[in-house]
Amino acid sequence: MNTHGHRHRSAHLGDKVLFNDENLLRLRKAIYDLCWLLNRGYARHSAIKLVGDHYQLPKRQRLAISRAACSDESRKMRAAKCLSIEAIKDRQLVIDGLNLIITIETIMAGGVVLRCRDSCIRDIASIHGTYRQVHETGNAIELLGQTLEFFEPENILWIFDRPVSNSGRLAVMVREIAEAQGWNWQTALMDNPDQFISRSDQIAITSDSAILDEVGQWINLGDHIVANFFPEAWIIDFSNTNYPA
């Protein structure tokens, strides 16, 4: 039973202003500059601070440009390793659980999400070390399950961050839904899920940039979900902006 049904991962107060047409023009310029720096080997953290300070961006806009931007090298490498969703048939999948579920919760609740330079769909939620179940959580897990199981993977391993409070409860919820539906899923709590997923030989489902740079194969499931189920979602598209080489 969802005891937090009054909560939604919807738009933040002020998002309509932060991401209005005038501010999106500034954010595109900021992403342009950030990509320029990343292409020249600047450290990501330093580059984000430099660009954020230059454009005087508040925290939420800085988070948006940091998730939207990547170097040309990363973009090409990620694209080369991205498989079509049909490729999961009879394959083993490993899922970055919090990363995926929070994004789908946000889309379902009408919150803002980004189509980033590498075509990944990313939210700009920040859980601050504690995951809180929302009204959309169960429906998000069921939609993900129905979508994935349609393409008949052999099995799915969901990985959750042990250091994040309440991630264990979410893992239990995922496992219970899978058992009720007869899906061949397992869940695991790990202290360093990024490292495990990055080194796995299974097909990864995540939008985490650091993981995508390391994995052998991945699926852009968020983009598939948006295209097939939420065409009216609040998507800010940074994927087709021309960025400097």
Rank of each mutant, 00 (worst) to 15 (best):
N2A: 08
T3M: 13
G5W: 07
R7L: 15
R7E: 07
H8L: 12
H8V: 11
S10V: 09
H12V: 11
G14Y: 01
V17E: 10
N20S: 10
E22T: 08
N23H: 12
R26H: 08
L27W: 02
R28W: 00
A30V: 07
A30Y: 03
I31Q: 08
I31P: 07
D33L: 07
L34W: 07
G41D: 06
G41T: 02
G41Y: 03
Y42T: 03
Y42G: 03
R44F: 09
K49E: 12
H54L: 06
Q56P: 01
L57Q: 06
P58H: 07
P58C: 09
K59M: 09
A68F: 03
D72V: 06
D72L: 08
D72Q: 08
E73K: 05
R75Y: 00
R78Y: 08
A79E: 02
A79L: 02
A80N: 03
K81L: 06
C82R: 15
L83Q: 02
I85K: 01
A87R: 02
A87C: 07
A87F: 03
I88K: 01
K89Y: 14
R91N: 14
Q92F: 09
L93T: 11
I95T: 04
G97V: 05
L98R: 05
L98Y: 06
L100M: 15
I101Y: 03
I102P: 00
T103N: 12
T103F: 06
T103V: 12
I104G: 05
I104P: 02
I104R: 01
T106W: 04
T106C: 13
G110W: 01
V112H: 06
R115A: 03
R115Y: 00
C116M: 02
R117T: 07
S119D: 11
C120Q: 15
R122Q: 11
H128R: 15
R132N: 08
H135V: 09
E136D: 10
N139T: 13
N139L: 10
I141L: 15
E142D: 14
L143V: 08
Q146H: 13
T147M: 13
F150C: 10
F151E: 09
E154K: 15
E154Y: 12
I156M: 11
L157R: 06
L157V: 06
F160L: 15
R162S: 11
P163W: 04
V164N: 10
N166G: 11
S167E: 05
G168Q: 06
L170I: 10
L170F: 10
L170K: 05
A171G: 14
M173K: 15
R175Y: 09
I177Q: 05
I177T: 04
W183I: 04
N184H: 12
N184F: 08
W185D: 11
A188S: 11
A188G: 08
A188T: 12
A188P: 08
F196V: 13
S198H: 00
S198D: 00
S198A: 13
D201T: 15
Q202K: 15
I203Q: 00
I203P: 00
I205Y: 06
T206H: 13
T206G: 12
D208K: 08
G216F: 04
Q217C: 10
W218Q: 04
G222S: 13
D223P: 09
H224T: 14
V226M: 10
A227R: 14
D237T: 10
S239W: 04
P244Y: 01
A245E: 10
